[in-house]
């Protein structure tokens, strides 16, 4: 059972306080988008074995959504950060690269 630190209230919460929300940094495609764009937004997920960016809500806590960078294979957590970002911040990217030198990078 994971523990993640909520960047909003600072609590290091176990998974039972949290609700998962799937892959982070999806770009929403609305009316006017192509079928391919819409399909990728709705259905295509990276589902990597390794570094993954995901959404969590501190549901039994401060109620805020936050994002986490985590290794799906080892469950190592590289960091948690604000949900109000379009892509992983530089410090998170640096933390991942330090731990996973061979990582192919975000995107």
């Amino acid at each position: 059972m994971l523990t993640l630190t909520c960047p909003y209230c600072g609590v290091t919460a176990e998974e039972t306080e949290l609700a998962p929300g799937g892959e982070a940094h999806l770009k929403r495609f609305g009316p006017g988008s192509s079928d391919e764009e819409f399909e990728s937004y709705m259905f295509a997920r990276k589902n990597p074995k390794g570094v993954h960016f995901e959404r969590w809500r501190h549901a039994n806590g401060c109620g805020k959504w936050f994002l986490a960078a985590r290794c799906t294979a080892t469950l190592e957590v590289f960091g948690t950060y604000s949900a109000q970002t379009k892509e992983p911040p530089a410090d998170i990217i640096a933390a991942i690269k330090a731990k996973r030198p061979g990582w192919e990078g975000y995107k």
Binding site: A19, R57, A59, G63, K64, W65, A83, Q84
Partner: peptide, 9 residues
């Protein structure tokens, strides 16, 4: 929760 998701994220 759905509302908050859209507002926060």
């Amino acid at each position: 929760a759905w509302m908050e998701d859209w507002l926060q994220c």
